[in-house]
Design a binder for these strands. Structure first.
Lengths: 223, 223
DNA sequence: TGATTCTGTCACCAGTCTGTCACCATTTAT
DNA sequence: ATAAATGGTGACAGACTGGTGACAGAATCA
């Protein structure tokens, strides 16, 4: 899922980006109203987090223009005291609002609530690489004729590997992507790789799908 | 479905309540603007029928406050001649209006039209998936030849599952959709799933219709 | 008003998942 | 040559999850 964050406060925008990335969003940034519209057009985000006080084109106008042609969920950010802005934003079509200052947890909760309320549940589409077909919502991977059930972390690892088939993904990258920035240990990744291999490799003692690159990381072999 | 009726005329409020109960609504009453807001918060109604001339807080303000944070369908009641009020109410976000005096039939028609227009849960038509045919109004599901009566929550859960057959619906999504934004607990969903299964599954110990995806949620299997 | 049904809450259970530790063989660095 | 690092393997304990049962209070019905 992709989120577009629009805020002229660069530091805050970065914090917001970090927060949403942490829970799985891809994030695109814009720091003024015009760029917001451009990015919205170019990136087709699933969610827009929109500050109301912006240079070049104010947040209300951005919200109005987007809402005129799309259903993209919009959360507006406002300063305490700007209740008129909030009301106006909501009237124009924003889906929810958050008042600064707020905790990251609040934003995440609102983002997830808005995603739930305004559309189908966030169902990732299937991923196919060669004879592997992964359904992240069902946590099932089909290998030719066989269907294998994966756990949450196994599914996440395979999804990450399948997103870049043939590319070596560094250990640190996998630790962050699968477990989040709070991190994890090499031990955990080793175990997870082992578990995944035991489920999908014809012979996990001689892996053909998920292979290791010593000192670098792992990759999903191209078919 | 629950309706909140707000009118300082007690007798009229009772008539309205009776009218809507007759067509299947649960009804909550409030006789002034402040109580209306309280009841709206506490009862999370699916529809609000709102007189504009109210003590303590007028109907326009009530409408504005509710509309600022929610999509609840609102029908405003007004006296002939108060066209400015009606226009203002609609601008603020009311969905429809009824001018006193009016017949009960008119109110019902408007209520149902508003529910349909604003995308409220499709209470009208039956849902069919495979051998399951759900009538939300009767709260009955037909499974082949057998007809089973469901409770309110059971019906809501099944309706939600049937709206996206074959798709895994996340636990949080189901909690919000079935119980509303106030949320609920996983325990409640577990129990509800159990009750629904006990009513519709051939063998609820081995569910074939409503199946679980560990760590994700539940789905209605495609036929 | 009393009876019945519905719902939320708590407890218990079996099975699964995950992190952690230990051990080992191989590779890399000193 | 030796020590350190790396990747692979096994095992186990605690946490988590989904399922089940039971009961009390709330809501509904007659």
């Amino acid at each position: 899922m992709k989120a577009l964050i629009v805020d002229d406060d660069l530091a805050l925008a970065d914090v917001l980006a970090f927060t949403l990335r942490r829970v799985g969003f891809q994030v695109v940034l814009a720091h003024d109203g015009m760029t917001a519209l451009e990015r919205w057009e170019a990136d087709d985000p699933d969610l827009i987090v929109l500050d109301l006080n912006l240079p070049r084109l104010d947040g209300i106008s951005v919200c109005r223009r987007i809402r005129a042609v799309a259903d993209t969920p919009i959360i507006i950010l406002s300063v305490r005291g700007d209740e008129d802005d909030i009301v106006q934003g909501l009237e124009i079509g924003a889906d929810d609002y958050v008042v600064k200052p707020f905790s990251p947890r609040t934003l995440v909760a609102r983002a997830q609530a808005v995603m739930r309320r305004t559309g189908a549940p966030p169902s990732a589409g299937p991923l196919t690489v060669g004879e592997l077909e992964l359904d992240p919502m069902r946590r099932e991977v089909r290998i030719g004729e066989a269907t294998v059930h994966l756990t949450g972390l196994e599914c996440r690892l395979l999804e990450t590997l399948m997103a870049s088939p043939g590319q070596v993904l560094a250990t640190d990258y996998l630790l962050t992507t699968v477990w989040g920035p709070a991190g994890a240990s090499r031990d955990m990744l080793k175990q997870l790789v082992r578990r995944l291999r035991s489920k999908i490799e014809p012979d996990s003692a001689h892996p053909q799908l998920v292979t290791s690159v010593a000192g670098v990381g792992y990759l999903l072999e191209l078919p």
